[in-house]
Amino acid sequence: MLKKILGGLAAAILLFVGFIATRPDTFTTQRSAVLPVSADIAFARVNDLRRWSDWSPWAALDPQQKNTYSGPESGTGSSQSWVGNDQVGEGRMTITDSKANEQVTLELEFIKPIASTSTTTFTFSPAEGGTQVVWTMSGDHNFLSKVMSLFIDMDAMIGKDFEKGLANLKTVAEADAKKRAEAEEKARAEAEAAAAAQNAEAAPAVAAPATP
């Protein structure tokens, strides 16, 4: 009797493992949004990892998270490592490719709670009303992540964070655009005032009419 039970259990395990093996080997999650700013403003926020804390959907999950930066301040080779609570875990992301105002590609490595590596890409392109930002993450499924995908909609879970992050990015990018516009307006006003003062100094004095 025990042999039959063990045999049945072994068969069930083999069937389950076989079924898991048929699950997709890769995954891709993608979300996009149109930001009412120029591409260079949105790009600057993504290309500088030190500025991610202002808009990243995960930044607020652990305000005490420890971040370490290395490499250039921005662009290719720039890297961030983090150690945080159970919600953010531990990992590292590195910009592997950066094309000004067009694309930022990163290698995302999770160490804890589950070791994994994926590729994250941001693309920036002109769109009606501003700049379309497309956020994509893709990678390989290991056995454990294949099992998890049976019970958790990974695209919906990750996609929800992407949507929140893009909304945050829109907010900070709009603030950056406003600051730039105000600075440009101030500089223009100062330049016009300086030009007017210079013209006034250069203008010849008008002689007073002679008295009869």
Rank of each mutant, 00 (worst) to 15 (best):
I5W: 08
L6R: 00
G8D: 04
G8S: 11
A10P: 02
A11V: 08
L14W: 01
L14S: 10
L15K: 04
L15N: 04
F16T: 02
G18T: 06
A21N: 07
A21H: 06
A21V: 04
R23L: 15
D25E: 14
T29N: 13
S32W: 08
S32L: 06
A33Y: 13
L35T: 10
L35I: 15
V37K: 09
A39T: 08
A44G: 08
A44T: 07
N47F: 03
D48P: 07
R50G: 14
R50E: 11
R50L: 06
R51Q: 15
W52C: 05
S53G: 11
W58P: 05
A60V: 15
L61Y: 01
P63G: 00
Q65K: 12
N67S: 13
Y69P: 03
G71W: 03
E73F: 02
G77H: 04
S79D: 09
S79H: 11
Q80H: 14
S81A: 14
G84H: 07
N85H: 01
N85G: 08
N85K: 03
D86A: 11
V88M: 02
E90D: 10
E90T: 14
R92C: 05
M93F: 12
M93W: 11
T94E: 09
D97P: 02
D97M: 11
N101F: 03
N101E: 15
N101Y: 04
E102T: 13
L106S: 14
L108K: 00
E109F: 05
F110P: 01
I111C: 06
I114L: 15
S118D: 02
A127F: 03
G129T: 03
T131R: 05
V134S: 04
W135Y: 06
S138Y: 11
G139Q: 04
G139K: 05
H141R: 09
H141A: 03
L144H: 01
S149F: 06
D153R: 03
D153V: 09
D155I: 03
A156M: 13
I158R: 03
K160Y: 13
N168W: 04
L169M: 09
T171E: 14
T171W: 02
T171M: 12
A175Q: 11
K178P: 10
K178C: 02
K179L: 13
K179Y: 09
R180G: 10
R180C: 02
A181K: 05
A183T: 10
R188Y: 01
A193K: 11
A194Q: 15
A194V: 12
A196K: 15
A196W: 05
Q198D: 15
A203I: 04
A205T: 05
A205K: 10
A205G: 01
A207R: 09
P209M: 08
P212M: 07
P212A: 14
P212F: 07
P212E: 15
